[in-house]
Design a protein around this nucleic acid. Structure first.
Length: 505
RNA sequence: GGUCCCAUCGACUAAUGGUUAGGUCACCACCCUUUCAAGGUGGCAGUACGGGUUCGAAUCCCGUUGGGAUCACCA
């Protein structure tokens, strides 16, 4: 195939024409808390798929359960997506031609379609109370059969008859609308990631479509919305797979063409269960607050379930858009491996140090100010450069590198382990050497040369002075190379620190 | 328990009937070295099991086992 570039390009062009016609996908979270990292990945895949095909990415809020609504969660979702750079083309905030984009603003629609379903004989009224349903399930459980709505024995329009049903309706009795699932036959559908799936109708429950509070359930609302919003591909988590037959049946009932389905593998805890709060941070804002880089986090999360080659790890968002293919999404769940995330973050750290140091300085300055430290951007940049290989998160810089901004605190344990009788004399000697250096021409090389000469002249090795010099200048046992550290501190600060240290002896 | 989904190194994955099963994280060793890192080199380690189909199977089919999801007037 490679040998015929002409053929390849024609195939590509046809592919592009077919697939860029009008891909429309949506991310549809419910405002019940924060944006889960699994949700972020779902949004990312939707976004990449849309952009890859030149299509439209839509944000829709699924708030049909009023009891679960959590104040502020829409803000969290929107701001987290914004942080990630996953910006919807249509959304409650932006609007669009297919709005409203909040389900609670669309309830008239769902009611009308529920009514249509009843008229078509695909839906029916049910009057059972929560207690009656509980008892039904208990009976079924006792009998050892699967809990399922028993259309033939419960209080619904079939067992009650048309007159009684109408009477109850007129009385304003609380009524739900259920889906009338065929007794026989099977539901077939195709999943882009998993292939063909067949489920016998007898295993599909008569799902509630419209609750007695007149709000729709997810099942009705998502089908109606996806159809009316002209969604072409439903890309969602695997947890929706078991209820997809219901949705397919609804599309058939309405006489609508169903969108293509793609069910994404789950994100997993280390013990392989569905990623949960109990075993670590699951909110996107947790990772934002910890200071993970946006690009690193996205890069990490996108590779959880999808990989364009297996030979490369670092991808820019543009490359991801270019490479993304639903067909290459894995079927099996992926463990969320923090260690690899940290590695990914440090890779980006390194690249920012060489390509975008200003970005890092911008991130560090607020945390320094919080600790009462004022330092120039230039100096902060130098320190970031000096220490970045020793931290994984840029937010750790202020803690790890505080000794570069304030008077050192002596690590007494370290001191005890390296301090010898002649140490003070050596430090004094080095201090004298540093004093002779030109403050204007004070850098790694001049410092290194001067100190090396001193070491050699006194018949020592660098090993003999390294630790005590570090102790005198930084107070700590770990840190960047001493010559660089002293050079960045500058002559005055270095002299001051060593003098201060000697005075404290 | 019913239904559905899934199964390559410890983890993320590549290999879509023909490779000594490749890469990355983690781990181990060595090198570098003034500490700690970073970096370099090398190593450990995998097709869950059993049957088929085929000249040839990680790859296709069946079964077993294991794991997961889901079974609400939640999404």
């Amino acid at each position: 195939m490679r040998s015929n570039p002409y053929k390849t390009s024609v195939v590509q062009i046809v592919h592009i024409i077919i697939t860029t016609m009008s891909v429309r996908v949506r991310f549809a979270p419910s405002p019940t808390g924060y944006l889960h990292v699994g949700g972020l990945r779902t949004a990312l895949y939707n976004y990449l798929f849309a952009k890859h095909h030149g299509g439209t990415f839509i944000l829709r809020i699924e708030d049909t359960d009023q009891t679960r609504y959590v104040e502020g969660s829409v803000d969290d979702i929107v701001s987290s997506l914004e942080w990630a750079g996953i910006v919807p083309d249509e959304s409650p905030q932006r609007g669009g031609d297919y709005g409203p984009y909040v389900q609670s603003d669309r309830t008239d629609l769902y009611r009308a379609y529920a009514k249509e379903l009843i008229e078509k004989g695909m839906g029916y009224y049910a009057f059972d109370t929560a207690e009656e349903l509980d008892r039904m399930r208990e009976r079924q459980k006792a009998a050892g059969i699967a809990p399922r709505y028993d259309r033939s024995s419960m209080r619904n329009q079939f067992t009650l008859g048309p007159e009684e049903t109408q009477r109850l309706l007129d009385l304003g009795e609380p009524a739900a609308v259920r889906m009338k699932v065929p007794i026989t036959g099977e539901v077939k559908f195709h999943d882009v990631i998993r292939g063909n799936i067949v489920v016998p109708c007898k295993d599909v429950d008569d799902q509630i479509l419209l609750k007695s509070d007149n709000f729709p359930t997810y099942h009705l609302a998502n089908v109606v919305d996806d159809h009316t919003m002209a969604i072409t591909h439903v890309i969602r988590g695997e947890e929706w797979l078991p209820s997809t037959p219901k949705h397919v049946l609804l599309y058939e009932g309405f006489g609508w063409e169903a969108p293509k389905f793609a069910h994404l593998p789950l994100l997993l805890n280390p013990d392989k269960t569905k990623l949960s709060k109990r075993q670590g941070d699951v909110a996107t804002h947790d990772y934002i607050n910890k200071g993970y880089f946006q690009e690193a986090f996205l890069n990490f999360i996108v590779l959880l379930g999808w990989n364009p080659s297996g030979e490369r790890e670092i991808y820019s968002i543009d490359e991801l858009v270019k490479e993304f293919q639903l067909e290459h999404v894995n079927k099996a769940g992926a463990v969320f491996d923090l260690k690899k995330l940290e590695w990914m973050n440090s890779q980006y750290m390194k690249s920012y140090v060489t390509n975008n140091l200003g970005y890092l300085v911008e991130q560090v300055q607020p945390t320094l100010r919080q600790r009462g430290v004022t330092a120039s951007d230039e100096y902060v940049g130098n320190v970031v450069q000096l220490l970045h290989e020793r931290i994984t998160l840029i937010t750790e810089l202020a803690d790890f590198g505080m000794y570069m901004f304030t008077d050192p605190v002596i690590d007494e344990e370290f001191k005890a382990s390296v301090w010898k009788d002649n140490s003070a004399d050596i430090i004094r000697g080095i201090l004298d050497v540093i004093r002779t250096l030109d403050a204007e021409n004070f850098n790694h090389d001049t410092v290194h040369n001067a100190i090396s000469t001193y070491v050699k002249d006194n018949g020592m090795k660098f090993k003999d002075i390294g630790n005590i010099l570090r102790l005198a200048v930084t107070g700590k046992s770990v840190g960047a190379g001493m010559m660089d550290t002293i050079a960045i501190l500058g002559k005055d600060a270095s002299v001051y620190r060593i003098e201060r240290f000697l005075n404290s002896l």
